[in-house]
Amino acid sequence: MATDFPLEIQGLHKILDSITAVSDPDALRERIAQLSEEAAAPDLWDDPEAAQKVTSQLSHAQTDLERMDKLADRIDDLGALVELAQEEDDADTLAEAETELAKIRSTLEDLEIRTLLSGEYDQRDAVVTIRAGAGGVDAADFAEMLMRMYIRWAEGRGFGTAVLDTSYAEEAGLKSATFEVKGPYAFGTLSVEAGTHRLVRISPFDNQGRRQTSFAAVEVIPLIEKTDSVEIPETEIKVDVFRSSGPGGQSVNTTDSAVRMTHIPTGIVVSMQNEKSQIQNRAAALRVLQSRLLLKRQEEENAAKKAMAGDVKASWGDQMRSYVLQPYQMVKDLRTEHESGTPSAVFDGDIDSFVNAGIRWRKQQQLEAEADAGV
């Protein structure tokens, strides 16, 4: 069926108008001006971490504004391209218009999804922890596959990543891994990936070639910032030090540089071993512990609000996504019903469609919960 370009272009303008109304470009310009002033400060690089954050935020904000400002022109140019192609009956130019239409749709979808990320910590960097669940060595291998998937996804978006801790399984894969994803709205975007993931495949570790089901848990928390007020008394923290180890227990460090930090009141445990010194690992562990306590505090506040509002429908369920490699090929999200028939592409980081569907689903759940509560 031939593309109805006038209808498509009209739809693109409507979506852009709604995005512009929510995004407030004027406020974004003010934010860019503020960040530009901070970036021009002569003492900016006295604190390299803060300087990098300012310059990164400025770059991403400028990119967002530029994309928004140029979209209207791109849509108008698409209309002119279609008119030219139709007047000259030029199939090649029409094909070019189809390609540009797809690109504009993709850009609009990214911007539209961004407008749905309005949570208190959605703009933050993310700390992702993946733990192998039931399924033995297959589960450990699955955990490593998921870690690679998320890191490939982050790299594809130009986000930075830093592995904080890895605990290797004896035969293959990971018992657990923790890593940062650094980029605008990294937490808000990846938070919909939290939950239990399930893999069904012919086990490469079973010499009888039997089908194996395994599980892995994904946790996503916002990265703590210096301005957050999460003070932890030293009396509430127990710190153990040990030697870092590599795959199969192989020692990769001859000093006790790895750190295990336990928050005594809650029992939350954080381990760090990927930095070079005990001091660096201790600082990284404290930052992740603060992040987990920050999220716990938010969850407790939300639970109290739900209790006051009554029985609000807001359950994610234990198992949120299945990756099936045998007897058929399919990845399916059990919350949104979104699916893909190419698991290899998904494991290679092509998860935007799942993430976007999850963000829309979560927003719908929030709206329904507010309606039920009479908000």
Rank of each mutant, 00 (worst) to 15 (best):
R67K: 13
R67M: 10
M68G: 01
M68N: 01
M68A: 07
D69W: 02
K70E: 15
L71Y: 05
L71N: 04
A72Y: 07
A72I: 08
D73Q: 12
R74V: 07
R74W: 09
I75S: 02
D77C: 07
D77M: 14
L78I: 07
G79L: 06
G79V: 06
G79N: 08
A80Q: 13
A80Y: 10
A80L: 15
L81V: 09
L81C: 10
L81T: 12
L81H: 11
V82C: 06
V82Q: 04
E83A: 11
L84F: 15
L84C: 06
L84M: 15
L84Y: 11
A85R: 07
Q86H: 12
Q86Y: 09
E87T: 11
E87V: 11
E88V: 06
E88Q: 14
E88D: 15
E88T: 13
D89C: 05
D89F: 09
D89N: 14
D89S: 13
D90H: 10
D90P: 05
D90T: 12
D90A: 09
D90Q: 11
D90M: 11
A91K: 10
D92Q: 12
D92S: 10
D92P: 03
D92R: 06
T93V: 15
T93H: 09
A95Y: 10
A95F: 12
A95V: 08
A95C: 07
A95E: 15
E96Q: 13
T99F: 12
T99W: 06
T99S: 14
T99P: 02
T99N: 13
E100C: 05
E100M: 12
E100P: 02
L101Q: 11
L101N: 09
L101T: 12
A102Y: 09
A102Q: 14
A102R: 13
K103N: 15
K103Y: 07
K103L: 12
K103S: 11
I104Q: 04
I104G: 00
R105F: 14
S106W: 06
T107M: 13
T107A: 13
T107E: 15
T107V: 13
L108C: 07
L108E: 03
E109Y: 08
E109G: 05
D110R: 13
L111S: 05
I113K: 00
I113S: 00
I113Q: 01
I113E: 02
I113R: 01
I113Y: 00
I113D: 00
R114A: 07
R114I: 04
T115W: 01
L116F: 10
L116M: 12
L117M: 14
S118C: 05
G119Y: 00
G119Q: 05
E120D: 11
Y121R: 03
Y121I: 02
D122W: 00
D122K: 00
D122M: 01
Q123H: 13
R124L: 02
R124G: 02
R124C: 04
D125Q: 04
D125M: 02
D125G: 03
D125E: 08
A126D: 02
A126I: 03
A126Q: 01
A126H: 00
V127S: 01
V127R: 01
V128R: 01
V128P: 00
V128M: 09
V128C: 05
